[in-house]
């Protein structure tokens, strides 16, 4: 079983406004992209566990032409609130690197 970090060529996360986070996973081959896109290990359910947000609020976009998968979901803590530890959301992607596909 592969982990996400073994497949992605580049991955980033960032705020999409103060109330949303978005994460982009880039792949350098169609095969690797398809492995992730078809994996039961990468679903709204598994991401819900990683990010502790409700599965129904997670949006996954598949962009085969770009070999990119995008994930967007409401922030668990609003940007800049007392318990926010990542103002720009730039480190949130690290939590999926070890997810098993």
């Amino acid at each position: 079983m592969a982990k996400i970090k073994e497949l992605v060529s580049y991955v980033r996360s960032k705020n999409a406004g103060p109330f949303w986070l978005t994460m982009d996973l880039f792949f350098d081959s169609k095969d690797k992209y398809m492995t992730l896109a078809n994996s039961p290990g990468f679903t709204r359910q598994t991401l819900s566990e990683v990010f502790d947000v409700k599965a129904e609020n997670i949006k996954i976009f598949y962009l085969p032409d770009l070999k990119v998968v995008k994930v967007s979901f409401p922030r668990k803590v609003i940007q800049g609130s007392p318990y926010d530890t990542d103002m720009h959301g730039g480190q949130q992607y690290v939590s999926v690197l070890d997810l098993e596909l």
Partner: peptide, 16 residues
Amino acid sequence: AFGISAHLLYENADPV
């Protein structure tokens, strides 16, 4: 072409 099309993803919840 990749860089320009991928920029739409940046800080945007919807990529399309």
